[in-house]
Amino acid sequence: MATAVKGVEKAVERRHHEIPPVDDEEQAAGRASRPRGKRRLGPGKAIPFGYLIGPLLLLGVWFWGSAAGWIDPRVLTAPWTVATTAWDLWESGRLGPDLLVSARRFAFGLAFGVGAGLVLALVSGLSRWGEAIVDGPVQIKRSIPNLALLPLLLLWFGIDERMKIITIALGVLIPIYLHTHNGLRSIDGRYAELAETLRLGPAAFIGRVVLPGALPGFFLGLRFAVTASWLSLVVVEQVNATSGIGYMMLLAGTYGQTDVIIVGLVLYGLLGLGSDAIVRIAQRRVLSWRRTLED
């Protein structure tokens, strides 16, 4: 042991001798780079408006490709053409009403879907009987794409707004149910014990323990749900509609107006990104009690 220690000491000594004298400049550089050496395993501090960087990069590539002439405008319209087309559509009063109709369908579909998904998740999450009855059908619905259900929904509900909202709500319900149910069941069992020792009643237990505890899951579900709502909207509006952005795109397709199609796609993209950002902001506010890698 003693010889081993001596050996280490010698090695340290030797290394010490090997270090050549450094000038001030180098020393300063070493000091400056020291914080970089202090590595943290988490993702680090949040970048301000970081979520915009990826989309802007994508936009940049599109812009640059079109400007340099690498992208054939017949395949993909240049971004400035898309912008002027959008402006023309807006000016002529064609875009505004369609956008409003689409937004309304999105909002109603999302609201009903979230409500239904939440209720089903609570019923199924809090009672074994509820789970036995609810969970199976939801899983079955989950494996059936909305597109396949559409003919049936058309027969049942006709072609009016009701049918569109129901279709969207059906798409929204699934992720809300799955993630809320999962979040609820992943609540630490000891919190339930704690609630029992505090003699919480069922209402207080749901309100103070279950709902807040399931919120992380719910928000994850909500992010999927928002996307699902836009996706269902596209399907609904392109299959049978006489208004909305999807209908506008469908019409443009038959006339070969690539720029209008792209306007629609960009709108879907922007609305999707915007609504996701809203959900994430809400999530950060509401879940401020958590300490995760997110912070």
Binding site: R190, Y191, L194, L198, R199, A204, V209, P212, W289
Partner: peptide, 26 residues
């Protein structure tokens, strides 16, 4: 009876006052 555990002692989503008030609310 009143009870106290090692962990988890508190509901993380409630404030300190909220945790205490919960017992009173009940």
């Amino acid at each position: 009876v009143a009870m106290m555990f090692q962990e988890p002692a508190l509901f993380p989503w409630l404030t300190v006052a909220g945790n205490v008030e919960l017992a009173l609310r009940v």
